[in-house]
Design a protein around this nucleic acid. Structure first.
Length: 839
RNA sequence: GCGAAAGUGGCGGAACUGGUAUACGCGCUGGAUUUAGGAUCCAGUGGGAGACCAUGGGGGUUCGACUCCCCCCUUUCGCACCA
């Protein structure tokens, strides 16, 4: 008898069977309750590594268990196959992204099969396939029609290394999310999606997800959307023109002693134009704008500014206030201009101190000070050490004096502004429109044609997909090979029939992944992005599993697309993912495992050495799913050993186990009549079922697996006899081990199941249910404490009375010794658990 | 700075609503088997000679605290001039 089970043969055998029989293929079936389980699909970077495995092992465990619970489970996989690495690799190897990508997909597909994930392979999609991106373009076309996709010139995030523009969500701490290089600001034309139109819907939708999504993700999205209430106010510029500002503090308007514009603000250059200040202003703007995001926004960067020489009129008191340009004012937020209230805003305060600008207090901290010394308040702006940002009573504010700033002031000032037609209450969001133009080749072409007469016109639906030409050469620079490709560019305007030029930018790949979950419901359909009945049956995704790194990016975009598709009547759901499980990252050498960081632990070597089952089991056993996991090879042998022990138990007792099938009634019914020690095994069996079930419901795979291991320890410690009842007990134990492990170690479970004589596959079995009668112990251990410290134990019937427990506790010799002759002050008895004697 | 999560043996991690802290696994020690190694099996394994002491530190509530409350420290993550 070999010590190591033949995992290679076993895994190949079952993978072959699953492939051939197509057990994991599903069809829409209104009779059955559906369950849509989805893991975030991978970018086909080459090979699976243990970081990938975690995601897919978790997903597969859930999918397989749901199948065992009788659900019609949709569990598909595909490829997020557009993207820069393919293009860069192609340039480096003088190959083509198409080839590189499809080779990688082939490699990764075979690896997915090698680890036995229960996918419906008939639904496989690849976002770089024309049959897929046709519908990506179709959605873009709808967005164009609805005014959601639009073109504008603006300051955008530019990554020089990737030679392309990035969305705000793709800039992490001022660095490119992909290559970690510094991002610069550049003024460019490009396509944007008006995600801001959906800001309120996206925010509201988060409420619906509460409890089903990790709170962390909900909070991050909420902060990202960043809703704030306030007012917009128009300030007249002395000598003509006006500036609109957004403020959350209309109650401090009387304290606005200067204005500040973002350097990028269109008026910044104009205001000083032709004056002797023009040069200084120009220099300041140029210097500030050329700084990258980090240099400009890092903590502790000093506030700087320059005076434009011009003044605006405070609309409430008609005072002239100087207009400055300041580095801390952001063009992206609000209107890119602010009214500055140094007494009540720390940033304005620092700026005012530096440039010696007036500071006027308009909110008094408490009532008393207003009543006692009203005249002093007008003066003490200079005495402030920092801005007062709290609430209080309005002072120095004309007719508003004495009002509670928050309860009345804000509304009253806003009302007044509205009456005068110089402002109103408004809501501002931090969320910006999504810049989606990418100056790279390997992405979905934006289906737009420029015509000198008609402007940008979208390609008609019957001309979709706009095919990305594959017969191209790649310049070393990383510039897109289609940017100068006349055969692609030159076309006819669909509107007027005149000459037209195709857009050569491609779409951000996050667009491709914003709707793919719909496509799985009818992956090969040629006439629509998804069959309406199919998509209505399967969507939403019941359980989504993916990395926390997409908390904002992908998860926000996918929600936005779903709301848009719902809006145009293409789908019925409003939120794509009912429940979300964010698994922690797999860390190696202190960084998230990824190919670009060069710290990947490839899967194939490990699987070769221990088998797919042991590898999957280990990664689920090593830590709870949400926690980060520092990878080490060290523990995997334990999982492998465990499987070997189970295998040997079955192989070594195969005759008894088979004989056990002849006892027709099964062990649980006979628990009352069997020997005590055998009954303990039956109880352990059913307790394990109950424990694995409840742990699984909470996705605590690590403890679920631990309890099966513990059960095996109990089982192997017991000397089974060969009588029919013992055989039945052993058989039952082995059967449940196979069933409970099936979601984690499917090949192994299948093999065990077959070995003990089953002809139907274990993957078709139902999830076991513990027998309640077997969960109750015959005896329980009662602990005895003296003054809260453990001093003794005894066992008793689980329904032992409190009086009896107390009696038994005091009878314990050790306990007696600790009590001595001291008086007993109190005795606490927890039924069936513990006695605590207080002396 | 703000917000969130976390801190338990040599290591990964258990402990559901306060009730035997350290389940399960790794590693380590000793033994059995083996020509040897590997594999396997058995026993042991928080610290301390000990009464006792231990869940980041310090207080508190309680008969009883990893669990609840207060203060502090550390780590990780997110946000960070958002007007």
């Amino acid at each position: 008898m070999s010590n190591i089970y033949d995992y290679k043969a076993i895994e190949a055998k079952w993978q072959g069977r699953w492939d051939k029989s197509g057990v994991f293929r599903v069809e829409r079936d209104r009779q059955k309750k559906k369950f849509y389980l989805l893991e975030m699909f991978p970018y086909p970077s080459g090979k699976l590594h243990v970081g990938h495995l975690r995601n897919y092992a978790i997903g597969d465990a859930i999918a397989r268990r749901k199948r065992m619970q009788g659900f019609n489970v949709l569990h598909p996989i595909g490829w997020d196959s557009f993207g820069m690495p393919a293009e860069n690799a192609a340039i480096a190897n003088k190959s083509h992204p198409y080839k590189w990508t499809s080779n990688n997909i082939d490699e990764m597909r075979s690896q997915f099969k090698m680890i036995g994930i229960s996918y419906d392979w008939e639904r496989e999609v690849a976002t770089s396939h024309p049959g897929y991106y046709k519908w990506t373009q179709w959605i873009f076309a709808r967005m164009f029609d609805e005014g959601i996709a639009y073109r504008k010139k603006s300051f955008v995030n530019w990554c020089a290394t990737c030679v392309t523009v990035l969305a705000n969500e793709q800039v992490i701490d001022g660095l490119c999310w992909r290559c970690d290089n510094k991002v610069e600001q550049q003024e460019r034309d490009g396509w944007f999606l008006k995600i801001t139109d959906y800001a309120e819907d996206l925010l509201k939708g988060l409420k619906q997800l509460e409890g089903d999504w990790p709170l962390r993700v909900l909070t991050m999205q909420k902060n990202w959307i960043g809703k704030s209430f306030g007012a917009q106010v128009d300030f007249k510029i002395e000598g003509g023109g006006d500036i609109t500002v957004f403020t959350t503090r209309p109650d401090t308007l009387y304290g606005a002693t200067f204005m500040a514009l973002a350097p990028e603000h269109p008026l910044s250059r104009k205001l000083a134009c032709g004056t002797e200040l023009a040069e200084g202003v120009e220099n300041f703007i140029r210097k500030t704008v050329s700084q990258n995001t980090i240099e400009r926004s890092a903590e502790g960067v000093e506030k700087e500014g320059v005076f434009t020489g011009r003044y605006a009129v405070n609309p409430l008191n008609n005072e002239l206030i100087p207009i400055w340009i300041a580095n801390f004012v952001l063009i992206e937020y609000g209107s890119g201009a602010i009214m500055s209230v140094p007494a009540h805003d720390q940033r304005d305060f620092e700026f005012a101190r530096k440039y010696d600008l007036q500071i006027r207090v308009v909110i008094a901290e408490d009532k008393k000070s207003v009543e006692e010394s009203p005249e002093e308040l007008a003066l003490d702006g200079d005495a402030l050490v920092e801005a007062y940002t709290g609430d209080g009573l309005m002072v120095n504010s004309g007719p508003f004096n004495g009002l509670d700033n928050r309860k009345e002031g804000m509304a009253k000032v806003a009302e007044y502004l509205k009456e005068k037609g110089i402002g109103e209450r408004t809501i501002n969001y931090r969320l910006r429109d999504w810049g989606v133009s990418r100056q790279r080749y390997w992405g979905a072409p934006i289906p737009i044609i420029y015509c000198d007469k008609c402007g940008p016109v979208r390609a008609p639906d019957d001309q979709l997909p706009v095919i990305l030409p594959t017969n191209v050469e790649f310049p070393e620079s990383g510039l897109s090979p289609i940017a100068g490709l006349d055969s692609f560019i030159d076309t006819i305007c669909p509107k007027c029939g005149g000459p037209g030029r195709r857009e050569t930018d491609t779409m951000d790949t996050f667009i491709c992944s914003s709707w793919y979950f719909n496509r799985y419901t009818s992956a090969r359909l040629k006439t629509a992005l998804a069959d309406r009945e199919d998509v209505d049956y399967w969507m939403p995704v019941d359980q989504y599993v993916g990395g926390i790194e997409h908390a904002i990016l992908h998860l926000l975009y996918a929600r936005f697309f779903t709301k848009f598709l719902n809006n145009i009547g293409a789908v019925s759901v409003n939120e794509p993912f009912r429940r979300l499980l964010t698994q922690g990252m797999v860390i190696k050498d202190g960084a998230k495992m990824s190919k670009s960081k060069g710290n990947v632990v490839p899967l194939d070597g490990i699987v070769r050495k221990f088998g797919a089952d042991a590898t999957r089991l280990f990664i689920l056993f090593a830590a709870p799913p949400e926690r980060d996991l520092e990878w080490s090879d060290a523990g995997i042998e334990g999982s492998f050993r465990f499987l070997n022990r189970v295998y040997r138990l079955v192989e070594g007792n195969i005759e008894s186990i088979k004989k056990g099938a002849e006892v027709t009634e099964g062990a649980p019914g006979k628990i009352g009549e069997m020997p005590k020690d055998l009954a303990i095994i039956v109880r352990a069996t059913h307790k394990t079922i109950a424990k694995v079930t409840s742990d699984f419901d909470r996705f605590q795979f690590n403890t679920a697996i631990a309890s099966v291991m513990e059960f095996l320890n109990t089982l192997t410690a017991y000397k089974f006899k060969d009588d029919p009842l013992s055989c039945a007990v052993l058989r039952e134990a082995v059967e449940y081990i196979a069933l409970l492990l099936q979601p984690f170690t499917p090949h192994f479970s299948s093999e065990i199941w077959e070995m003990i004589g089953h002809t139907e596959p274990v993957t078709d079995e139902l999830w076991p249910v513990a027998n309640d009668a077997c969960l109750k112990d015959e005896e329980v251990l009662i602990v005895v404490q003296v003054n809260g410290k453990l001093r003794g134990k005894f066992s008793a019937s689980p329904d032992v009375s409190k009086e009896e427990m107390e009696k038994l506790a005091f009878a314990d010799e050790k306990v007696k010794g600790f009590i001595g002759d001291k008086p007993v002050r109190k005795v606490i008895v927890v039924p069936g658990k513990l006695v605590n004697v207080v002396i």
